[in-house]
Amino acid sequence: MAYMPDERRMQAMADVTVSNAHSTYSGYQSLVRLYEATKGSWGDTISVELAIWFNANLAAPLGAILDGVVESLNEVSLDKLPPEIKTILQKNGFLAHFGYPALRDTNDTTIKYLKLRPSDGRYFNQYVLSELLGRSELPTLSADLRKKIAESIYEIFVNAQTHSETRHNYTCGQFFPQRNTIEFTICDAGIGFRTSIKRRFGKDLPAKRAIQWATAVGHTTKSDTPGGIGLAIMKEFIAKNRGALQIVSNDGFYELNESGENLRDFNGEFPGTIVTMIINTNDRFSYGVAEAEATYSVF
């Protein structure tokens, strides 16, 4: 980041806008800008404005960034919110962490914002049960698809638990009935794929390449236990579902969608890893394995 005299830097940190943030490369870039504009601040009041649009699932990485800001004894003010953004972030519980009362979601489209320690797996079980598996108001989801989504979410959660060295995981989702999609994000404020690979193999890959490597079958940074199946399974699921998988780690962006894989760099970095699944809820693909194909001779 370019050097700025203290006075200008203070001014820039005082008011930061995240504008028109969707689950897209440019949406994540606006969060990266927020992190870059606020990192290194100490004892300030930082006003964050969310303008035009803010995808509710992005509350997860926003929470991770703002927690870092608050930990440096800054005060965060979220008082410049358009009414629609404010309402949805109250309904999903995000703004309750920043001085607002929670609101009841009468449309039943939110998947709650949750911040938890990696060791709090039991709370995460309850969350997946109450927010996904047990939701009768998501009728378009077949039982098969529901289980497949929950499995993918667990794979990401335990991946972060094992590798990221984060203090907290952040999750949030949103159901878009008009678009027939669920957008679900899990993020951490941990070391990221690049550092994990560098520590294990002594090589410093660009972040986007590090992410891509980690999504291939059998690729793991664990030295004593096999692994590298979770992200690969998720890629297969997303391809069948005709959804999308996005991974942000440090300054790298990876996306898998119907057009294939797309790798890009950010201008700046995110302090951890974000994984977003965009799931097509109109999916009639059968994810079950026929009993006849199942075999107990697996060893």
Binding site: K147, V217, G218, T220, P226, G227, G228, I229, I233, Y287, G288, V289, A290, E291, E293, A294, T295, Y296, V298, F299
Partner: peptide, 25 residues
């Protein structure tokens, strides 16, 4: 070692885990 009372999709996952483990070691 024998596995019992596992559903078909979980058996498919276990098969992948076993194949990956053999290769890993």
């Amino acid at each position: 070692l024998q596995v019992v009372q596992m559903d078909a999709t979980d058996l498919a996952l276990l098969k992948r885990v076993v194949e990956t483990a053999k290769l890993f070691y």
